[in-house]
């Protein structure tokens, strides 16, 4: 039993790492008042660029860096369109996703070695190895947590840091103010435009790390289905975490390994229709949204979405 739990936990953490990065990034972006539906496209771009760099240079650090630069640039496009040009955030985000899907697929078939017909699919590159913490890493349960790749270890650190930054620092307070009430924030002397730019780009970089984790650690290599819709689950997880980076871990643990869990249940002879399990994250998210909204309406307590989420900010708008 302990063995099964350990192995379930191990795969869930590993599968959830990419989600965790992207979710935390998106929480920060949404907290500043910008909805970014381009996560799926950014994760795909992060995956394909990081894999290509790792394949040619053998440098994982460089691979990660390039992935972050590329997705930061994509986020910058989103920021420019939605913040400066005041474009609709939903439409801009969707465009980014369609663009990212197309471009990653294109690059995946052009960046590869000539011997493989320029295809990146089917070649092997360097990837992040699992690092076992000595001694403790052998114990049941602990071996699941302490037998992961370096990006997962960093993720462990990022959760409390992201929480601390948002709730315990001046900058975090400013960020939340910008997302709640940009006009007041501006009056308090916060540069709303700059804040939104910064956190949108940071969110994009995190999505890039998420994509890179898929291509360099979780399922090493490139394929067009590598994200498997994770970018959309991220949007759901942000809601599930109630825009609190500290709670992002819960959703990723619940839904990160949903496929892996379903396969294990099958192997153990349990019969739950796979489709039902796959539907779960989306259904639960709708339910969570309803409950959050109702709770806010009646409880008068603010826990849900930042009030200014999705709304362009105009300095001298009447």
């Amino acid at each position: 039993m302990i063995g099964l739990i350990t192995s379930l936990l191990a795969i869930t953490i590993s599968a959830g790492t990419s989600l965790l990065y992207a979710t935390i990034g998106e929480i920060y972006t949404e907290r500043s008042g910008i909805l970014n539906l381009g996560i799926e496209g950014m994760m795909l771009m992060g995956a394909v660029t990081s894999f290509a760099v790792s394949y040619y240079t053998n440098s994982l650090f460089l691979a990660l860096l390039i992935a972050m630069v590329v997705t930061a640039f994509m986020a910058l496009i989103h920021a420019f369109l939605t913040i400066t040009m005041k474009a609709n955030q939903v439409v801009s985000g969707l465009s980014i996703t369609i663009f990212g899907t197309g471009l990653s697929s294109f690059l995946g078939k052009r960046l590869g070695p000539e011997s493989n017909n320029f295809n990146l699919y089917g070649v092997n590159g360097k990837n992040f190895p699992d690092i076992q913490v000595p001694l403790v890493g052998d114990w049941p349960i602990f071996s699941a947590i302490l037998n992961q790749d370096i990006l997962t270890y960093i993720a462990y650190l990022i959760i409390p840091l992201a929480w601390f930054f948002m709730y315990k620092t001046k900058k975090g307070l400013n960020l939340r103010a910008v997302g709640e009430n940009p006009r007041t924030a501006e009056a308090m002397g916060i540069n709303v435009i700059r804040t939104r730019y910064i956190y949108t780009v940071i969110g994009g970089m995190f999505a890039g790390i998420g994509g890179a984790h898929l291509a360099l650690a979780y399922t090493p290599g490139w394929n067009e289905h590598i994200t498997g819709g994770r970018g959309w689950i991220v949007i759901a997880l942000v809601i599930f975490a109630m825009w609190n980076p500290g709670k992002a871990i819960l959703g990723t643990l619940l839904f990160g390994g949903i496929n892996a869990i379903q396969f294990r249940l099958q192997a153990a002879g349990t019969d739950i229709p796979a489709s039902l399990l796959n539907m779960l994250p989306y259904l639960v998210t709708v339910l969570a949204l309803v409950l959050l909204t109702v709770y806010e309406n009646y409880g008068k307590r603010k826990i849900g979405a930042p009030s200014a989420l999705g709304k362009p900010y105009m300095k001298e708008d009447k």
């Binding site: 795969i11 290599g221 394929n223």
Partner: peptide, 8 residues
Amino acid sequence: YNPTQERE
């Protein structure tokens, strides 16, 4: 054809 799921 879904390399990720096949691996899992």
